[in-house]
Amino acid sequence: MTDENEVMTNTSADSRKGQGGDPGAEPPASSWLGQGEAAKHRRADALFRWLATGSGIAVVSAVSLIGVFLLVQAWPSLQANNANFLFSSEFDTRDAENLRFGIRDLLVVTVMSSAFALVIAMPLALGIALFLTQYAPPAVRRPFGYIIDTLAAVPSIVYGLWGIFVLGPFLVPVALWMNRNLGWIPIFATGNVSIKGGGTIFTAGIVLAVMILPIITSVTREVFRQTPVKHIEGALALGATRWEMIRTTVLPFGRSGYIAGSMLGLGRALGETVAVLVVLRIASSPATFSIFDGGYTFASLIASAAHEFVHPLPTGAYIAAGLVLFILTFVVNAIARTIANGKMQRL
């Protein structure tokens, strides 16, 4: 039923475009109205159109300004920086005369935690999307979907509290076991913070995985739901089992949407602030590429220093970090949109 509606609105939108514009492009010629009345309507029409267009322009300029402003504010600090911005692990802004800041550790911790989150969340989200579109009885699909969406409604700071006070301590034995038995693999080696404290990338990554699960699931679910019924029925008619049907029709059809959804989830994880700030412990030595490292991500570093934003030069250092984060998420999101293009109009 809903599918039918969708098709109807889609075709009507297409036909509108085919005629070279929406019906609004040809407003009625109200010749039979009085002269004054018609002029008043024309003015009102123009005003309304101007308001709508103006809002659109305001949004475009606001977003373009984000990058420009961050760059302008970060530039003097980048000029005054005495360390290598890309490769230094230092982030010392206490002395405005001698700024030393670099993003190496921030980048390592941000990418490690987000990638770890993605590794956990991607297969789970695929399973949940399949369950909600193909396996669950139709009557409960909607309520079950609501349950997964509820995960997205929980504020990130609450995830942070749960992560550090409940999940972290619970995971310590698991982390210790992994470290003891798999420690010879570099990413499971002992990191720069105590594993017993629980505030490691390992914990943060799992919290992030839970947080990005709903967005990956909802995008994937949406594309899986659009799999042509004829393909599904065709596969079943040829004697395919349910799994074979999914492998030959649903998965190939939904692959690009699944990847796009995962990229959107990655974008979320990269920019997540407070949950990571609360979970990760401060590290005193540089990152070692282990999931048992601590430290700061771009976002959590900025949030942790927010109350020190007084002098322009040190503040600019954090804004420079924010600019890198903005570019990072911009690129990831742009890739997601490009992959998704054509398969679905809006995510």
């Binding site: 984000i66 602030t273 900025i302 804004i319 903005f326 999101n333």
Partner: peptide, 16 residues
């Protein structure tokens, strides 16, 4: 793009 902007970046922009 705006829907993908992290909240901390939005906050920094308003700060700037």
């Amino acid at each position: 793009i705006l829907s993908g902007v992290p909240s901390i970046v939005a906050a920094l922009f308003i700060f700037a």
